[in-house]
Amino acid sequence: MLAHSPRVGRALMAELFERSQARQWGLTVEAFQAVLEASAAHALGARSAGPDDVERYLASLHLADLALATACAAGQEAAWETFVREYRPILTRAADAIDPGGGARELADALYADLYGLRETAGARQSLFRYFHGRSSLATWLRAVLSQRLVDRARVAHRTTPLGEEDDAPLPDPRPAAPDPERPRFLEAVRRALATSVGALDAHDRLRLGLYYVQRLTLAQIGKLLKEHEASVSRHLTRVRGALRTGIERELREREGMTEAAIAECLRSVVDDPGALDLEALVGELPGGKNVRDNRSRD
């Protein structure tokens, strides 16, 4: 039930019910109304939403998918047949896209048990479908659920090793380490400058950087995710990279009092082995004196 809005009006409910074609799955208007209200409460519950907001929200839902998911959650056989016929290939393709070796298919297959709800609570099956509220298409939601399972599995597998750590472990440097008395000072200076520059970026730019440099997505994949053309992604990355470079150089020049030659030497020294940067300290020294991790978590 919505906390800040009235129940869905009868006329609107009738229209939504009709559009959802929920009748073909044997759902009643009352049952589907409860699902819609639960969806609205889930999405808008924390906000003060008026009737217009609720109506707009409900009208934006993928009603047919929601009806199908609701019927599947209820164990409706025809709905399950439809679901398996129409969505199994989608799940299979998604799994194969991630891991053509078949490793992800296992997880995709395992999803069916959770979607059906083999576990019971208080005598009722706990179907995974109850988390689908129709805000996206069912196909996209299934891809997201599969992705979630994959990431969680990877995190469990690497519980003692944070994601990406093994990927980024530097190889032993075959070159003999040249002692550089200035190196500690350079590292510290670049660390501060980079912290300032990265912290000055907006979230969208940081997201692009992360998807490219950390997650190693292609420009096309980033573009698709962020609804940008890949050429735009490229331009933005180029711009941000240039801005970071400029920001670092400015910080070194103004805050550290370095000359152009000293800046070049400093960057060269650090770039040769950036792994020595104190990253924990880096993220903790953003402008405003706040810890970026805390900020990002709360955002």
Partner: peptide, 11 residues
């Protein structure tokens, strides 16, 4: 971010 990246790769 890893979740979003995997999600992007499911397409």
């Amino acid at each position: 971010q890893a979740l979003a990246a995997v999600f992007a790769r499911t397409e």
